[in-house]
């Protein structure tokens, strides 16, 4: 019951964050400040409607799978759900406040501060991608254990 939503939502979520890391981050690194802020705001507008929902479904279904599984499958699924939880909490506590600052309309923050926030967000997203990939691999391994 839990395996199918866990694998589908987990795969879609991890694939999405991987594509941002692989395709968007190099473009955003190369962009100047204003160009970055515009492109980043556009992406956020779309990402914020899909990625958190996929992450929550991944977390709930992986936790549900862990509760109903036994042995190694349970342990692996618990680790996977911990990974998804870290991504959720880390995004909410660290990356969302940075995002808000970066796309704040009429922001008067100096360019150096915005550059620092951009670097922090890009680093945070790369860390989130690594954790999401690890959580997906653990969830997949749990499903076949």
């Amino acid at each position: 019951m839990w395996a199918i939503p866990m694998l589908i939502a987990g795969g879609l979520f991890a694939g999405g964050v991987l594509m941002i890391a692989w395709e968007r981050i190099p473009a955003w690194r190369a962009a100047d400040g204003e160009e970055f802020q515009t492109a980043f705001a556009h992406t956020l507008r779309r990402a914020d409607r899909l990625q958190p929902a996929l992450l929550v479904v991944s977390l709930i279904s992986t936790a549900g799978f862990a509760l109903t599984a036994e042995g190694a499958a349970r342990g692996l699924a618990l680790l996977a759900s911990a990974g998804f939880l870290i991504v959720l909490v880390g995004s909410g506590a660290w990356l969302v406040p940075i995002q808000r600052r970066l796309v704040e309309p009429g922001s008067t923050a100096p360019a150096s501060e915005l550059d620092e926030l951009r670097s922090q967000w890009l680093l945070g997203h790369l860390l989130r991608t690594v954790v999401a990939l690890a959580a997906l691999t653990l969830a997949v391994t749990a499903a076949v254990s």
Partner: peptide, 28 residues
Amino acid sequence: RLATIVMLTAGGLFTGGVVWYAWERIWI
């Protein structure tokens, strides 16, 4: 087991990437 893990992981990342393009890049 190995074939299943590779199939699901690569399949999930591929589908997630393609969906991401449809959802974000195409809209922009």
